[in-house]
């Protein structure tokens, strides 16, 4: 499938240039310029504001390597990203499958809307709603105690699971959408062909459906993993004291400590690490797909 797309895009790039120009202009203004400014900052001793003294330094990058705290937190964030991505696959892929292959017509549209809804709600509202659900005496605690005959204490608030739940909820729509698109494109006759050749439903899933929807799984995983590793809002609000991650430290540099150069340097180290991971994972994933 991939090779077809590639051959399609090779020809006709020249006539498409005028059409691409606005997009490239926008990318330059909105991403390239601010990003270059940040690269610049990351090599400074201080912000060039209000006549402050500043000089070029590599100290901000050196800080990452001299204090083990940063790499420990980065590892914790990478683990968080991995776990959230895995949970998104576990929750999102079956949902996408049901949407694409089981439901038809109206009910599909309705469920689709429910899946996309968190996308459209404000991030903070979403997170504080989870806070209300997860805390002791909150909605989950009360509901479970109303149903169960024995008393249990549910207080997930300010814990690692709370962070996971909040992040999975925020990011699972990406997985559902990308997987839905690839699953939707799989012709039902392929599944029937598999069955007619003697494969059980499970074998068809393993040998036909999952390999064919691999591009969607990979795209979804990349879309989720990258921002989750740098996330700070969910860890801070739902994780409390346990919610210190690499992302929250970067945020601190920008909004609390006001050490933009260090924040910028830490961000670029994160970016480099994530890019290296994606580059290493790409060939492995491509072979799987």
């Amino acid at each position: 499938m991939g090779d077809q797309l590639a051959t399609g895009s090779r020809r006709g790039l020249k006539p498409a240039l005028p059409l691409l120009l606005p997009a490239y202009l926008w990318l330059t203004v909105a991403i390239f310029l601010p990003l270059s400014a940040m690269v610049f900052f990351s090599f400074m001793t201080d912000l060039p504001l209000a006549g402050k003294e500043w000089a070029f330094t590599l100290g901000n990058y050196a800080a990452f390597f001299s204090q083990s705290l940063y790499s420990t937190l980065l590892l914790a964030s990478l683990r968080l990203g991995l776990e959230v991505t895995l949970w998104c696959v576990v929750v999102g892929y079956p949902a996408a499958y049901v949407l694409a292959k089981v439901l038809k017509g109206r009910s599909r549209e309705a469920i689709f809307l429910l899946v996309i809804l968190p996308f459209w709600s404000n991030g903070l509202v979403r997170i504080f709603s989870w806070a209300m659900v997860l805390r002791e005496g909150g909605i989950l605690d009360t509901a479970l105690n109303a149903v169960l005959p024995f008393k249990i204490n549910i207080d997930l608030m300010y814990s690692y699971p709370a962070v996971i739940i909040g992040l999975v909820h925020s990011y699972v729509p990406y997985m559902v959408l990308t997987c839905y698109l690839t699953l939707q494109a799989i012709d039902d006759s392929l599944l029937e062909a598999g069955r007619s050749l003697g494969a059980s439903r499970l074998q068809v899933l393993k040998r036909v459906i999952i390999p064919l929807s691999m591009p969607g799984l990979i795209a979804g995983a990349a879309l989720i993993f990258v921002p989750v590793v740098g996330s700070f809002m969910e860890p801070r609000i739902l994780g409390g004291r346990t919610g210190t991650f690499y992302g929250t430290v970067i945020e601190d540099q920008f909004v609390a400590v006001f050490n933009w150069p260090l924040g910028a340097a830490l961000s670029f180290i994160l970016l480099a690490v994530v890019l290296i991971i994606l580059a290493l994972a790409a060939p492995v994933l491509r072979r799987a797909g």
Partner: peptide
């Protein structure tokens, strides 16, 4: 008897070859 146990061979109009 489910499809996979019927021991039939089927050729589909669009061939339905596995592209992967």
């Amino acid at each position: 008897v489910p499809v996979e146990k019927r021991r039939i061979g089927m050729v589909f109009q669009n061939y339905a070859l596995f592209p992967n």
